[in-house]
């Protein structure tokens, strides 16, 4: 009897040790991956490195401007008009990030939220960055992924960006806050920085959906990339408006462009939480990042 108790006690002690080691390892792994991810993003993100600086305020000596006419020659009205119409090209605020990893195709920001991340595009393997950080190392947070059927050049009607729903709030963890209309009222805009320019969006619809079976004939938000006809546009637009949790008051018409942010939720199998925004006034244009 004593012998059995000793053995059992030994087994239990061993199990306790193993459990403690396993829990410790997983907690450390969680912490280090979250820290690693945050550090990389912080290093790449220019808005956090220079307090009070916003990308549109950044100007470098590389600003291209037309030559000013000589002060001895009176300028004509035509010359003045030409001067005003020439767009001002700024240095891309995320130039170093674009150069650091050619898979990065954009940077997305929702002002006053944690969503401030690079967006990766790997058409040969859509899921490459699903569990890898910006540097390509294993990381459960992954990166935001631009759907391979979306394209920035030439620009498709709809850009779909997928991101993990992390409990820590990282990546698209805070996207589900848009379920609250008050949160939407405070954060109605999305900004996307591409290599060429800044694109501004206004949120038009917020809804819950799911990934369906291939044989299901239902509205699939993740299948809409291009609207070449009024009918194709109407099908997408009417469905997102119908599904939307609330009326944002924003409308769209054929020819408008969209951005769709998608993350997992668990209300159904393969559930998705979706935020769709319509492109509004254009932002800054940038000098080429690569020669």
């Amino acid at each position: 009897m004593r012998e059995r108790r000793r053995i059992l006690s030994g087994v239990l002690s061993l199990l306790i040790l193993v459990c403690l080691v396993a829990l410790g390892y997983w907690l450390w792994q969680d912490f280090s991956q979250n820290r690693q991810n945050a550090m990389i993003v912080e290093a790449l993100d220019i808005t956090s490195s220079e307090p009070g600086t916003s990308p549109s305020q950044t100007e470098s000596p590389d600003i291209t401007q037309p030559e000013e006419p000589s002060s001895e020659v009176p300028s004509t009205e035509a010359e003045e008009a030409a001067t005003q119409e020439t767009p001002l090209l700024l240095t891309n605020p995320y130039e170093s990030a674009f150069l650091a990893n050619p898979d990065m195709k954009a940077w997305i920001q929702i002002p006053d939220t944690k969503i401030d991340y690079p967006v990766m595009w790997t058409p040969k393997d859509e899921n490459y960055y699903l569990y890898k950080d910006f540097e390509g190392k294993e990381n459960k947070n992954g990166c935001l992924i631009l759907d391979t059927d979306s394209c920035l050049d030439p620009l498709t009607t709809n850009l779909i960006i997928h991101g993990h729903n992390m409990k820590s709030g990282a990546m698209f963890g805070d996207l589900t806050d848009y379920e609250d209309e008050d949160y939407y009222q405070k954060h109605p805009r999305i900004i996307l920085y591409t290599e060429q320019c800044q694109r501004n969006y206004e949120i038009i619809a917020v809804f819950r959906s799911q990934v369906y079976k291939k044989t299901d004939t239902v509205f699939k938000f993740y299948k809409f990339f291009q609207a070449d006809t009024q009918e194709e546009f109407d099908d997408f637009y009417n469905n997102i408006k119908k599904l939307s949790l609330y009326d944002t008051g924003v409308t769209a018409s054929f020819g408008d462009r969209f951005i769709t942010l998608s993350t997992c939720v668990y209300h159904v199998t393969n559930g998705r939480f979706v935020v769709v925004a319509k492109e509004v006034e254009p932002g800054d244009s940038y000098l080429p990042v690569r020669e």
Partner: peptide, 20 residues
């Protein structure tokens, strides 16, 4: 392969609770 191919963006759960 029954379902459409869309990136799975759910957080992979760690088995904290069973181990605890």
């Amino acid at each position: 392969s029954d379902y459409d191919d869309v990136p799975k963006t759910g957080e992979v759960p760690m088995p904290y609770i069973p181990v605890a």
